[in-house]
Design a protein around this nucleic acid. Structure first.
Length: 138
DNA sequence: GCCAACGTTGGC
DNA sequence: GCCAACGTTGGC
């Protein structure tokens, strides 16, 4: 088993929300059309944990999901060039962590979510993961 | 709805 | 291979 890594995946809630994922039990996280995001996707392993972030609406991390299937082909992509993963919901945050809170936290100024706001799959350092989890617990 | 940031495309 | 134009994303 490879070392566990941490990620943040973004989804627009009106397109595919946390509740949709919970309802389905397992969701395919596809539609990535960005090379850096694709590289991150391909670096995911089964068992890695991901923050689930609502973009455009909500603007907060709403919960944690676990990678259940790694490195599959994006079913929405005809060219076969793009990657996807499957994820399962793990837990929902009691207190969702908003982008505002993250930007207000000096230790998180350096994270991919702040620096590369348009990246839909960002990697999270273990420290950053821990801090955000602490914020979610209130 | 606006605008900034970024990626992609296409002309040269 | 460079760079301007354009499209898309996402925060505000």
């Amino acid at each position: 088993m490879a070392e566990q890594k941490f990620w943040l995946i973004k989804s627009e809630p009106f397109k595919y929300s946390w509740d949709d994922l919970v309802a389905e039990k397992e969701g395919t996280w596809d539609g990535v059309r960005n090379h850096l995001a694709k590289n991150n996707l391909k670096a995911m392993n089964v068992g890695d944990e991901c923050f689930f972030y609502h973009s455009r609406e909500g603007l907060e991390i709403v919960g944690i999901c676990t990678v259940s299937v790694a490195d599959i082909l994006d079913p929405t992509d005809e060219t076969g060039k793009w990657a996807a993963v499957k994820v399962k919901p793990k837990c929902k945050f009691d207190n969702p962590v908003s982008l505002k809170q993250i930007k207000a936290e000096p230790r998180l100024q350096d994270c991919d979510l702040v620096r590369l706001s348009r990246l839909s799959v960002a990697s999270i350092k273990p420290d950053e993961w821990k801090w955000i989890c602490e914020m979610a617990e209130g």
